[in-house]
Amino acid sequence: MEQIMNDHHFTFNAAALVARADGTLWWPDEGLLCVSDLHLGKSERIARRGGNLLPPYETQDTLWRLKAAIAAVQPERVICLGDSFDDITAAQSVPEEARRSLMHLQAGREWIWIEGNHDPGPVDIGGTHRVEVTVGPLTFRHITDGKTIGEVSGHYHPKASVRGAGFARACFLMDRRKLILPAFGAYTGGLSVGHTALRSLFAADGLAILTGKRALPVPLSACLRR
């Protein structure tokens, strides 16, 4: 019951959706779970490019949380909204252990990889690869095109805070036309909703849904004030 209390139920373009505290989007009527920006293999990429060596455990951590998210709602369909792999090389060199975990998660359900800017090509792991996908009134793609009504996207890793009530949390952003998901991957930074790149995307009556222990909706205007 705790689970339900912590979720935020809302209607978006006539679809009854649930923003979950863990940062995933659940669409019960379609049995569809959507996650964005997993960035699997980030540490390998940074090491490859000669940066600081991060231990590779973050991929495992992201997959464990994904497993928990899937176990909680038992979706029939999972959409990964792009930037699932930190780059194409990461996608092609997923460690054996992680590959097995992914296969377990994919078993018995439809799995769609949407292409992102980090992972534009097809990857050699189960599931279908699509640039975008439309389900009923909703369109799923990696980066918003700024026009489509009923669009669900990722890419920006939005974060927001409310003045006088704690630190910035990863959040969903939405108005009547579009919905942007928070990043699900470990070690992914965030873009503050106050940033012009995000601010300009949303209507004045937009909403942020903070994640963490509970999914808490708050007017975007209240986040932008700082």
Binding site: V162, G164, A165, G166, L210, R214, L216, P217, V218, P219, A222
Partner: peptide, 9 residues
């Protein structure tokens, strides 16, 4: 935070 967000809403 919950009280605050509800109030803001």
């Amino acid at each position: 935070l919950q009280e605050k967000t509800e109030e803001l809403m």
